[in-house]
Nucleic acid binder design. Structure first.
Length: 564
RNA sequence: GCCCUCGUAGCUUAACGGAUAAAGCACUGGUCUUCGGAACCAGUGAUAGGGGUUCGAUUCCUCUCGGGGGCACCA
């Protein structure tokens, strides 16, 4: 809002000078340089063949005065710096304190509806700390776009059919033959999934060795696709286990999906679409398989239907896209929050979809990839037995909190989720996370609990008295108070930017900065013991800080608590 | 071999092409007659290397080195 007003004013001044160039407007790193700063004079001075300082002065002369801009100054080598009027800062502070937060509308198209597809677990594996990343990012992206005025559909795609399932069930059948039907009887849900994972890797080993075992696995795979009653009950039973297991994890991460898609829904239609694409000459036959030849587009060649006539992941993806782009009406965008290893896969399937139906898909599919979560000691691999489970991390984190602070179980749970989520989301998407236990459950410094602590601290002060929302303007305010005021108006800008650039970490960085500013203020100035006018002003600052932290954390998928 | 990514203090990370490269952890030293010390203050310490574009480069281009991922019947 402020930002747009200043931009307009600046643009009007430029127009008066006959300049059409769009000006930039940023927050100077150093607040001595004002609230906003533009380097437009530096950019256009060369074409104008004038000194940047002179150009800047001329622009400033042409600025129309308004009630937002207190002053505009030119600084070497040609920056124009703007200071916002205190009255605006005060009124915004009051709005925030009353919970009035208006996010800028921002959408990815006309429809204002986007699908975020994330989580996509491998049903036969324990959920490890790497999987947590897609879950956290996806939920945060969903919340950010909702805040920016979009309808968001949360979708999840589960791999419940395919060779990996066949490998597991083949081995499972062997075990049942040896030990009887009661293998799962004494196990917890987690142990059951762990057992399936073990069966999978044993099956996988047999498959890689080739020979009779491999043939049998391929046969099991075919039987599942054909809905053969000999294997289906076992398939259904294990599938159910996996769904229950993952549901528990989603719940703990405060995620609820609008739609769970399953690969097993896709194979028939996937084959049909692939066949049609073959007839249209989009796909081609090669060595008995149906493939997309990506060479002419500079991308990889990948198989859609294998030589046995079964659809691959690619083939099934075509059916998935069709469902995703029809079940919820038209979409602006479908964001697939998936790891970088799928990048080639998405490039190819997106291209095929685009050729099949440009109107429906062009520019609407997006692979939002993120870096790996690795251990400081190296990569996780089940073979090395150094896989860290997501739930273990959450539980351990909670345990540490309970032991250190003796808080209630429910509070510890919230704080544990906050600690772990925040430690992931404060990183940019593309960077790898070098996982470190102490770091990820950090309770101090730049951490989730620090932010919540700051929030609780605010609440604690506010609970001791009441404040009026009357518009009192303090004549002289301290640097610490001003720093807070100047942070407030940036919040909605940061949220918008986080959406535009798909970067939840911008919100994390902002919140930490805000919390630091509040704590510095808190350290230096008395709130409750100040004179009435000052006290009321400081209470409003406190209230607004709490509100912004709460809203910001919500956008990261983190709950606040009232006491800790 | 080709494609995609990443390389910033001892460690983990910020920085929309802008002003003195910003924090957290760790380490050293400090703040308590305090509204919540899960806090605050101070100090040490960094852009992998070479070219280029620009008034200005951590950011863009290029080469080199180094890490990670991917490249046909797995998902």
């Amino acid at each position: 809002m402020v930002r747009n007003k200043i931009l307009e004013t600046l643009q009007a001044a430029l127009a008066k000078m006959g300049i059409e160039e769009k000006p930039d407007l940023e927050h100077p790193a150093n607040s001595d340089f004002g609230d906003y700063s533009s380097s437009i004079a530096l950019k256009i001075s060369k074409n104008l063949k004038k000194n940047p300082m002179d150009v800047a002065e001329e622009i400033v002369k042409n600025l129309e005065s308004n009630d937002l801009i207190e002053k505009a100054e030119v600084l070497k080598p040609g920056f124009i710096n703007f200071w916002i009027t205190p009255s605006y800062l005060f009124s915004l502070n009051k709005d925030l304190a009353q919970g009035k937060i208006e996010y800028f509308p921002y959408s990815l198209g006309k429809i204002k509806k986007i699908m975020v597809e994330y989580a996509h677990p491998n049903p036969l594996k324990l959920f490890h700390i790497g999987h947590l990343r897609t879950l956290f990012i996806g939920e945060s992206i969903a919340r950010i776009f909702e805040a920016l005025g979009n309808k968001v559909v949360r979708a999840n795609y589960e791999g419940d059919i395919g060779l990996h399932v066949a490998k597991c069930l083949w081995r499972l059948k062997q075990i049942i033959k040896e030990k009887g039907d009661v293998i799962f009887a004494q196990m917890t849900l987690r142990e059951k999934i762990s057992f399936l994972g073990k069966a999978y890797s044993e099956g996988n080993k047999v498959y890689e060795e080739g020979g009779k075992g491999k043939e049998e696995i391929i046969e099991v795979n075919r039987m599942i696709y054909e809905n053969n009653s000999e294997i289906i009950p076992l398939w259904e039973e294990t599938r159910e286990l996996s769904l229950n297991y993952f549901n528990e994890i989603y719940k703990r991460a405060y995620t609820q999906f609008d739609r769970l898609y399953f690969e097993s829904e896709m194979h028939k239609r996937g084959v049909e679409i692939s066949q049609q694409a073959l007839e249209k000459g989009i796909l081609e036959e090669s060595e008995g398989a149906i493939v997309f030849n990506g060479k002419k587009y500079g991308i990889d060649t990948r198989v859609f239907i294998n030589a046995l006539g079964l659809p691959t992941y690619e083939g099934k993806e075509l059916a998935l896209a069709e469902m995703e782009f029809s079940e919820f009406g038209e979409l602006d965008k479908c964001i697939h929050v998936v790891g970088p290893e799928q990048s080639s896969f998405f490039k190819v399937t997106f291209k095929v979809e685009e050729i099949l139906n440009p109107e429906k898909y062009r520019g609407k599919q997006m692979h939002l990839d993120y870096g790996w979560v690795t251990l400081k000691s190296g990569k996780m691999s089940s073979r090395q037995g150094n896989v860290i489970e997501g739930e273990w991390l959450l539980n351990k984190s909670k345990e540490v909190i309970v032991n250190s602070y003796k808080c209630e179980e429910k509070t510890a749970e919230s704080l544990a989720i906050a600690a772990v989520k925040y430690s992931y989301l404060k990183n940019g998407l593309k960077s790898n996370i070098a996982f470190d236990f102490d770091e990820s459950i950090s309770l101090e410094g730049n951490s989730g609990p620090y932010l919540i602590y700051t929030y609780v601290r605010c609440q604690s002060v506010l609970a001791k008295t009441s404040c009026s929302n009357d518009g009192i303007i303090i004549k002289s305010i301290s640097k610490e108070e001003k720093d807070l005021l100047r942070s407030f108006y940036q919040f909605t800008e940061v949220v918008e930017k986080a959406g535009i650039s798909f970067s939840p970490h911008l919100i994390a960085t902002y919140l930490f900065d805000l919390a630091q500013k509040f704590n510095i203020f808190y350290q230096k100035h008395q709130i409750l013991k100040a004179d009435d006018e000052t006290k009321n002003f400081r209470l409003l600052l406190t209230k607004a800080t709490a509100q912004v932290i709460k809203n910001g954390l919500y956008l990261l998928g983190i709950e606040t608590v009232e006491k800790m």
